[in-house]
């Protein structure tokens, strides 16, 4: 289950996603929440994300295909494509006085509204210009979807909201009771569906331990070194300068070029003081 929050700086969208995750954790589930890092200024549009699952969540990416979109400020409906990526049968929940049927959304989207601004102000949360609507909206989210229990939201507010916890609890209860959901032909949300995508889990310890000498690089070569041993002074310059570690010595100290690795760069021929190595065209 993936939830995306849209709000304005100061309304509590980031806190809403965190409280939702904390409440889901108190319900015994595996949550995750994080904000989109943008211009975090008062009044600027803010996006935050939450995931809830029955198994540990391994993805860490922002949410592009949410099951639920929560909009804390109805003004954003006109400025931000809030339903972008929302799944068919997904839910759009908006803080507005309007009825859910009035929300602009395709028929495949389920719609819900709650007048969270009025609820917040009636409990003394925020100011008329900037009501703090996150807890009322969270209660509405629980009422419309059941993805978390109201009890867990209450407990999360008690634990994590430092200012006016009692008022926030009451706002969430009122949101829970007063949320309105439009009739819909869309299939209901599958609350516990949404498996975490399977990711490659790296093992602890080294992950690449196969030595590269199993790879033969001979095919890179267009010129092949041929050593004329009768002139070789066994100075080992060829060995010293080989960037491919493709030169060995035989029992008598003469160079042996390991042709399965030699890429034919020609350094050995170039650096050989008595010029005993000749680069010969392949084939």
């Amino acid at each position: 289950m993936e939830i995306r929050f849209h709000g304005r700086g100061g309304q509590g969208a980031v806190i809403a996603s965190e409280l939702l995750a904390q409440a889901a954790f108190l319900d015994g589930r595996e949550p995750q929440s994080f904000p989109f890092f943008g211009v975090e200024r008062r009044g600027a549009p803010v996006t935050a994300y939450a995931r809830i699952n029955d198994r540990p969540i391994q993805v860490r990416t922002s949410i592009e295909r949410p099951d639920v979109v929560v909009v804390l400020d109805p003004g954003l409906l006109n400025t931000i494509p809030v339903t972008e990526g929302l799944k068919e049968g997904g839910l759009l929940l908006v803080n507005t006085r309007r009825a859910p049927e009035e929300l602009p959304a395709p028929p495949s989207i389920r719609r819900a509204t709650v007048d969270a601004s009025r609820i917040a102000l009636s409990h003394g949360l925020g100011t008329p210009a900037m009501p703090i609507v996150n807890t009322a909206t969270l209660g509405a989210l629980a009422g419309a979807t059941g993805i978390v229990t109201l009890g867990a939201i209450r407990e999360a507010i008690d634990l994590y909201v430092p200012s006016h916890p009692a008022e926030n609890v009451r706002a969430s209860e009122e949101g829970f009771r007063s949320v309105r959901v439009a009739e819909s032909t869309a299939a209901p949300l599958a609350v516990s569906a949404g498996r975490s995508p399977a990711l490659l889990v790296l093992p602890e310890g080294p992950i690449a331990t196969t030595p590269s000498y199993g790879i033969h690089t001979a095919a890179w070569r267009s010129l092949t070194p041929v050593v004329h041993l009768e002139r070789c002074t066994r100075c080992n310059f060829c060995w010293k300068f080989c960037p491919d570690n493709a030169i060995d010595f035989d029992a008598h100290g003469y160079p042996v070029i390991r042709l399965e690795y030699c890429k034919g760069c020609g350094i050995c021929a170039e650096e050989c003081p008595p010029r005993t190595i000749e680069m010969v065209a392949e084939g």
Binding site: P211, S212, T233, Y261, C265
Partner: peptide, 22 residues
């Protein structure tokens, strides 16, 4: 054979993916 002037031990394996003459 001339005495080696640098250590014999090789800790870089062949078969790596560097260009020729790298």
């Amino acid at each position: 054979m001339a005495k080696l002037t640098i250590p014999a031990e090789e800790l870089m394996y062949p078969g790596h993916a560097a260009c020729p003459g790298c």
